[in-house]
């Protein structure tokens, strides 16, 4: 591998502080039993991730994270929270040794895997060299769209995006079917016979 060294620029320290804040927010979410606080913290988590993505020059991802993660998800979580209890039930104290062992082994395996990873920002990293480089080289000739992300999303990988749109459509249909308020059946009253006690419920 090439000898690419990460320079300790202020941006690296910014990244590190953002990642530290992400971990702190995650721990705060774990500790809190107050669901409103958890929802707000998850919004903060998304906003911090968005800031992190901006610092990684992934503005499209950051934009999506800020709009979907910090915006709509928080609102939907709040709306969902109104339908349930405001506080999480206190969990029974006690340790789970098996779960702890699994977490530690997985964490150690992941930490071990990072040794093989290319250095942060390495221009010769596999993610930057083969297909990625080809997209950067060919987009001006093939698509002639300045934003390469849009070119990949809507043209090169247009079929994938069609599937994603169908996923969102399906999610909407599923919510309508599960939580339908009568609006889905045009506001008509439905006279289902009440199931008698003892029968299939």
């Amino acid at each position: 591998m090439s000898a690419f060294e990460v320079e300790l620029t202020p941006i690296v320290f910014l990244d590190l502080s953002l990642l530290t804040m992400l971990i702190l927010v995650a721990f705060a979410m774990l500790r809190s039993r107050h669901l409103f606080a958890v929802v707000m913290l998850s919004g903060i988590y998304s906003l911090l991730s968005a800031a992190f993505f901006v610092s990684l020059d992934a503005v499209d991802v950051a934009f999506t994270e800020a709009a979907v993660g910090a915006g709509v998800s928080t609102v939907l979580m709040l709306a969902g929270m109104l339908l349930t209890a405001r506080r999480e039930k206190p969990k029974t104290p006690g340790r789970a040794p098996v779960a702890l062992a699994v977490v530690f082994v997985t964490g150690a395996a992941l930490a071990y895997a990072t040794i093989d990873m290319p250095a942060f920002g390495d221009p010769d990293a596999p993610a930057n060299s083969y297909v990625g480089q080809q997209y950067v080289d060919e987009t001006p000739n093939d698509i002639a769209v300045p934003n390469i992300v849009t070119a990949v999303l809507a043209s090169y990988r247009g079929f994938d995006t069609m599937g994603e749109t169908m996923v969102i459509f399906t999610a909407g249909v599923a919510v309508m079917l599960l939580l339908g308020l009568g609006s889905a059946r045009g506001g008509r009253e439905v006279s289902d016979a009440e199931p008698e006690d003892g029968e299939a419920k």
């Binding site: 709509v72 609102v75 939907l76 709306a79 969902g80 109104l82 339908l83 093939d142 698509i143 002639a144 769209v145 849009t150 070119a151 809507a154 043209s155 247009g158 995006t161 069609m162 749109t165 969102i168 459509f169 999610a171 909407g172 919510v175 309508m176 939580l179 339908g180 308020l181 609006s183």
Partner: peptide, 29 residues
């Protein structure tokens, strides 16, 4: 390519906006 991308993005935008509002309506309502 420009026309095609504009057309499919318009479809995506329409579908996402109405789905998000549908989900919000059904949760909040």
């Amino acid at each position: 390519q420009h026309y095609g991308i504009l057309l499919v993005e318009w479809g995506v935008g329409m579908c996402v906006a109405s789905t998000m509002m549908t989900i919000f309506y059904h949760f909040t309502g």
